[in-house]
Amino acid sequence: MNLNHRILQVDRLTKIYGKGTQKTEALQGISFDVLEGEFLGIMGASGSGKTTLLNCIATMLKPSSGKILLKDKDISSLKGNALADYRGHEIGYLFQEFELLDNMTAQENIALPLSLQGISLEQAQKDILQIAERFDITEVLEKFPPQMSGGQKQRTAAARAFISNPGIILADEPTGALDSKNSKILMDMLAAMNQEEHKTIMMVTHDPNAASYCSRILFIQDGRLFHELRRNRQEETTEAFYDRIVTVIAQLGGGSANVL
């Protein structure tokens, strides 16, 4: 982690849905930074605003006010081709439901972000094999998604998110559609990408198990930052960090029933 380089800066971000009496403030002036090489978790109860926050960073939603700076560039004002370029070059997105194109093979899916940048499958072959090896999906490269298991699909989606070497990976409940075994495999691999390749990952999750792989967790409540947990990987085990997360979730009020 590069402590001196902020890759993402979120500054007094607000998002208001509706008008007049129908107004709902999903985000109420959230500010935080993400450092290069960090593995940041966002947790919070349903309706706390965590998905709205992720959608704003991913440019799926336009914030009502505030700034989002990625590599010192304000992305909230991007439009048209510049917006498409940002999505294609600067962020990698990992969806809960994988969102693989099921009429394309795994390697075609992985190559898609590069292909959209004008790089052919042939030119990208070396990178594809490398990332496929990293996510243990070499055997399924020629297969179509319906011929793959849930775990393989999500690892393929992860490979697609990393292939274009984006500045930041945004993951929205990446283990939400996986069983516990495949969740663990995926999280181990994401953590490895973070620690060995120094990839910056920002992950929204309900799952304390998944969150325990993060280096820092922001807890959001009613559109505001409520709490922050940091983990020192050298001194604290994943299990110990997990216990601390569960405690905070309980303190958020109402236990997991209220969070999940």
């Binding site: 194109l101 009429n103 394309m104 075609e108 959209l116 052919s120 499958l121």
Partner: peptide, 18 residues
């Protein structure tokens, strides 16, 4: 052909195939 093509050509062809 797909190995040498970039852009949406593979997607378009796969859509058509399906």
């Amino acid at each position: 052909k797909s190995r040498r093509k970039a852009g949406l050509s593979v997607f378009t062809a796969r859509q058509l195939q399906e």
